[in-house]
């Protein structure tokens, strides 16, 4: 399959970047992984056989790069400082729920404690609203594994939120 690098990049760059921002938790690391992802894409493009769609192929490379980057650095920085994740306050003050805002901050903190593979399925399921089958294709695992990862991710987040709620009420 002959693919032009620039065309491929233009077709999926924003989608990959958005995934990396969510995955890495900050834009500095997302920039680094974005670069290394597309260096790999350029390098391996001649051997791309078209087994998966080009976007799926690039996304898989991005997922691998994100995992190796995290292993190399051994840490992830938060994208948002406390308060940034708060839902925006309308001019009339409507639409702002401080209790929910506090919990959304906790969710952001909980996300940072999740392993990458669990974070991936949460992102694809809840943000990209993909089916289990599509996620399975992306992560290269059976549908059952996707379901169990989603379950584990939610359980871990619930436990994190509970712990924080208890801590606040003490």
């Amino acid at each position: 399959m002959l693919l032009d690098f620039e065309t491929l990049m233009n077709s999926c760059a924003h989608e990959i970047y958005a995934y990396l921002v969510a995955r890495m938790g900050n834009r500095f690391d997302a920039d680094d992984v974005f670069q290394s992802t597309f260096f790999k894409v350029r390098h391996f493009l001649p051997s791309f056989r078209g087994d998966a769609s080009p976007t799926t192929w690039v996304m898989r490379i991005a997922m691998n790069e994100a995992s190796s980057f995290r292993r190399r650095k051994g840490r992830e920085l938060p994208l948002l400082t406390p308060g940034d994740a708060l839902p925006s306050l309308g001019t009339d003050g409507v639409g702002y729920d401080p209790v929910q805002a506090e919990t959304v901050q906790d969710i952001a903190a909980g996300m940072r404690h999740l392993p990458g593979d669990l974070r991936d399925v949460l992102y694809f399921y809840y943000y990209k609203e993909m089916s289990y089958e599509r996620i399975a294709e992306y992560v290269g695992k059976p549908v059952g594994t996707v379901k169990s990862r989603l379950f584990r991710a939610k359980e871990e987040l619930k436990a994190f939120l509970e712990a924080h709620r208890d801590h606040r009420t003490q």
Partner: peptide
């Protein structure tokens, strides 16, 4: 929980675009 997860993602990722200089650099 699901609603909160969605809210988190929308707050974090909505409208995120690759910076132009990064795109140029990679190309």
């Amino acid at each position: 929980l699901e609603q909160l997860v969605r809210t988190h993602y929308h707050a974090t990722v909505d409208g995120v675009r690759v910076p132009e200089d990064l795109l140029r650099q990679v190309l």
